[in-house]
Every structure is written in structure tokens, then in C-alpha cells.
Nucleic acid binder design. Structure first.
Length: 274
DNA sequence: GTGTCATGCGTAT
DNA sequence: TACGCCTGACACG
């Protein structure tokens, strides 16, 4: 269940094992047999991520495009390789490493032009951190009149945020999730971008989402926090805010829950209805 | 064993 | 706004 940091981390770890290698490809499940046949025996040049998308670039110019969706999972395996699960969409193997992919929303072979079309639909990726990322966000948010909590899940606004980061980032910048996107001050959007870059890069390094500072839960700096201590707002409905003690609230936006602290993220009365 | 839910997204209505 | 797709973990009996 991946947000952008997971995909960039996967790209980095997989690149280390498969970059420059000739790979064998098969689709035990059968749903990607034609694509697997196409890349089987080809040399995988590199792997890169943009938002929640992964691109495997072969020296034939074919590009394998993977999007995990809500359920997709990678497993990196070493010999002796276990029996692949029945639902494995794709196995990519060398003599020393195997990538096992199950449950992706997207697994397809694209041309470079088709890859460009996918990337063109994405907003700035905080891990790639383009210098004008904040300006792109300011422009894209200004055109929308929806709750900021909905806007930042839109991958055209910013690419890579998911349901955990949206609650956590809005908490970190003290912004109420139902604030109308077009009324968020530029300075606040810049702070949102800055925090997105910092938090997703940290998540990519650690492999987990941990927005809480150890000092705020009474632990020494550098402590690895327990799972239950790592977040300020996400899935904490009714629990006390780690900063002010007020009770965390939640609401549904377009079918997905969002959590916030009513004191740390105050309403000013102009919010859109929940 | 069964049912529910989840860090996502595209399409139809 | 609703539904479909994809899988695994966990709660419950």
C-alpha cells in the first residue's frame, strides 16, 4: 500500500540488483504473458520512479510501466527461489536475484512517447524535488476550488502523496483539511511543498512514514519510534493530539477518511462543507 | 472459514 | 457519486 516514497525506494533497491542486467521475464498468472515475452532476455538499463509510477527502461526502448495501486506488492528474492505465488503477475529474474510482482493496478510495456504522456499528467514529485515545484503547486491549487485535503491527493497537483501523508502534512503545516484550495496563501503552499520534500525523502530513506519527532513523545533524539507513535493524525480519531491534547477528528472526503487536530489546524469559518 | 478493510485510480453515470 | 479492479492482513466466529 504505497505512497511515493515506497516507489522511489523500490526503484533504488531494484536498480542496485537489476540495473544493467539481462533479465528473464515470465507471468505465472498469465495476465502479462505478452508483455513478459516482449522483455524476456532484454537488458534492463535502469529503473526510475515518478510519483507512484515505476519505469523499467530496456535498451530496446521498451519501458515496463508498473503502478501498484492499493494492493500491489514487490518481493525481492534470492536463490533458491521459492515457488512463485499463483497470482504473480511478473517475475523478473537474473541468476542471483528475482523480482516478484503481485496485484498491480498497472503492468504494461510502453514506448518512450507513451511514458512521456504518463509523466505529463503528473504534478511535481517531492522526491525528485524540481526547483519550481512550489510554484507548480501554487498554480495548480489556484485553479481548483475544492478542499485542500482533496486537492493534494490529486496526482496532477502533486505526485506521490497518499492518504497517510495528506493527513500528516496538513497537520505539520497547521492547515485545516477543508480549507478551499484556491484560498491557501502562497506562503502556506510553499511550506506544504517544503514539508512534502522533507518528509517523503525521509520516508524513502527509512522505508516508513514517521512524521513525529522522538522528542514529542518523550523519547531521546534518534530513537526509532514504535509503529503506534509515528504519526500525528492518521487513523487517530478520538485520541489526544500529541502536541496539544485536543481530540483528533476525522471526516470523509470523496470516500476516503482524513484526520486532523481541530486546535493545531484551526478552522476560520470559511471552510468547505465536509 | 468468512467478512472487512486498506498507504489507489480509472471509468461510467 | 458509484462501481470495478487487484491482494493480503486481521478480526471475528
Amino acid at each position: 500500500m504505497p505512497e511515493g516514497h515506497v516507489l522511489h525506494r523500490a526503484a533504488r533497491l531494484q536498480r542496485r540488483r537489476f540495473g544493467g542486467q539481462t533479465v528473464a521475464a515470465e507471468s505465472p498468472q498469465g495476465r502479462f504473458s505478452a508483455g513478459a515475452d516482449r522483455i524476456d532476455g532484454q537488458r534492463l538499463v535502469t529503473i526510475d520512479a515518478n510519483g507512484k509510477h515505476l519505469f523499467y527502461r530496456f535498451d530496446t526502448d521498451d519501458v515496463l510501466h508498473v503502478h501498484l495501486g492499493l494492493f500491489g506488492k514487490f518481493r525481492l528474492q534470492r536463490p533458491p527461489y521459492p515457488e512463485p505465488s499463483q497470482n504473480a503477475r511478473l517475475l523478473l529474474s537474473t541468476a542471483t536475484d528475482r523480482l516478484h510482482l503481485a496485484g498491480p493496478t498497472t503492468c504494461e510495456v510502453l514506448s518512450p512517447d507513451e511514458v512521456d504522456a504518463v509523466v505529463d499528467r503528473l504534478g511535481p514529485d517531492p522526491i525528485l524535488a524540481p526547483a519550481d515545484g512550489d510554484q507548480q503547486m501554487i498554480e495548480r491549487l489556484g485553479r481548483r476550488s475544492i478542499p485542500i485535503g482533496a486537492a493534494i491527493l490529486d496526482q496532477k497537483v502533486v505526485a506521490g502523496l497518499g492518504n497517510v501523508y495528506r493527513s500528516e502534512l496538513l497537520f505539520l503545516i497547521g492547515l485545516h483539511p477543508f480549507t478551499r484550495s484556491s484560498t491557501v496563501p502562497d506562503e502556506t503552499v510553499k511550506e506544504l511543498w517544503r514539508q512534502s520534500v522533507e518528509q517523503l525523502k525521509q520516508g524513502e530513506r527509512s522505508g516508513m512514514i514517521n512524521t513525529v519527532l522522538p522528542s514529542e513523545v518523550g523519547a531521546p533524539p534518534g530513537t526509532k519510534l514504535e509503529r503506534a507513535e509515528r504519526l500525528y493524525a492518521y487513523k487517530r480519531h478520538g485520541e489526544p493530539c500529541r502536541r496539544c491534547g485536543d481530540l483528533i477528528r476525522s471526516a470523509d472526503i470523496d470516500g476516503r477518511m482524513i484526520w486532523w487536530c481541530p486546535t493545531c489546524q484551526p478552522a476560520d469559518g470559511r471552510e468547505l462543507a465536509a
